[in-house]
Design a protein around this nucleic acid. Structure first.
Lengths: 212, 212
DNA sequence: TTACGGAATCGAATGTCAGTCAATCATGAA
DNA sequence: TTCATGATTGACTGACATTCGATTCCGTAA
């Protein structure tokens, strides 16, 4: 600590930012490695280089930390999706792309696998973090006459749980990854678009996601 | 123990049946009272009038006991539904009635409320226990040209998670009970029937369920 | 009826954690 | 430099799920 440079903001505030960041980071690493339940607060605190008790001045409970971890994953994915879809013209396609991409991420990235138990936690985080986009898309597409949705929030809530359930089954190996296609079709059907249109929409080629 | 009457079957086998039954019973009572996590094996064992260690000669873990409890609830509900719907002629209506009834039960009976956390457990039990009926109905309705389902198991899996998610939100008070109607409509849309037909099907009057 | 081997049961003991708290330490204002 | 504030620490507590050696109970055979 001989050559600490004076920072524009207070030292405490800086450290708190670092600590919260480090904790979410460590939580993410440990929880996606061994699962939320098997992760211990001790290991997370150690990895974040923080006392075991300190965690509780940032997060009220282990569950709250888990939620923070998951929300970060969701928010980051939502932004990456948004970056691609804001060039789309068909609002229905925006929703289709979003849904599809979330499923690919959830089933493709090993780090999601362990998070996927605790379905309510994941689904709720997905609802909150991606909801603003998804609900907006559902409403846009409905206004455009493409979808027939009366309660976009409800439709999105149902979609999140379905996505989590199917993803869980896929990562467990009880369903093949190929069901993703049909899952998207079903989610589109649920928007009130016809089955044929849903199938067409789900089959469209889609651009790659920017890396994250 | 002076006047034990000799039973037709071995004493041990009889007691084992009683014990398993008593444990699932006690588990049901305690878990639906305070929630699966807050229920302690000690309390359940006490209520079943059995040593704490004995539980583990019937169920490998607390989770396995919880699953047994939930499966019993599901199976019983499935049978009660089946008793009503086998008089229906429209196969689509059978599915609609089933879905609707499960939601009413899940959101209406206080004893479900606490079970509803652990969404994966509930949804999986629902998938297994009611799946044989639901999948059959989906396939019947598809064969009749009413629904357009290619993978009935997948459609049912998605439905179970949606049902659990919405029910959870309703029992938490974050959604009004009135969303049940629209949820049924969406689940019917997901079968590939059109939106208008879905709405009509969901709006039909339905007979009462036999008590359980 | 009595004796015996093994299965079923018991419940105290174990180990693991999440979460607490009294003692320290660092920060920044005066 | 001094000191009050509040952030941090890590040993500790309490709660449980699960285990395991001791004990009881059954069914059988003499």
């Amino acid at each position: 600590m001989t050559e600490t440079s004076t920072k524009p903001k207070g030292r405490v505030a800086q450290r708190q930012l670092r600590n919260r960041e480090a904790l979410v980071d460590a939580g993410h690493r440990v929880m996606s490695e061994k699962g939320i339940d098997a992760a211990t607060m001790q290991e997370i605190a150690d990895l974040a280089d923080v006392g075991a008790g300190t965690v509780y001045s940032y997060f009220r409970s282990k569950d709250e930390l888990a939620i923070a971890v998951i929300e970060r994953v969701m928010r980051s994915l939502a932004l990456r999706i948004e970056a691609v879809t804001d060039t789309f013209s068909d609002p229905g396609q925006v929703y289709a792309f979003g849904v599809r991409t979330v499923m690919e991420a959830a089933t493709g990235d090993i780090r999601w696998k362990q998070l996927l138990n605790r379905a309510e936690v994941i689904a709720d985080a997905m609802f909150r973090c991606m909801g603003p986009f998804a609900i907006r898309d559902l409403e846009n597409a409905s206004r455009a006459g493409r979808f027939k949705v009366t309660d976009a929030a409800l439709t999105w809530k149902m979609a999140t749980y379905s996505i989590v359930g199917v993803s869980l089954a896929v990562t467990c190996g009880s369903l093949p990854r190929s069901v993703i296609q049909e899952t998207v079709v079903r989610l589109l059907c649920a928007t009130g678009i016809g089955e044929a249109d849903a199938r067409e929409l789900a089959a469209r080629p889609r651009p790659a996601l920017p890396k994250g």
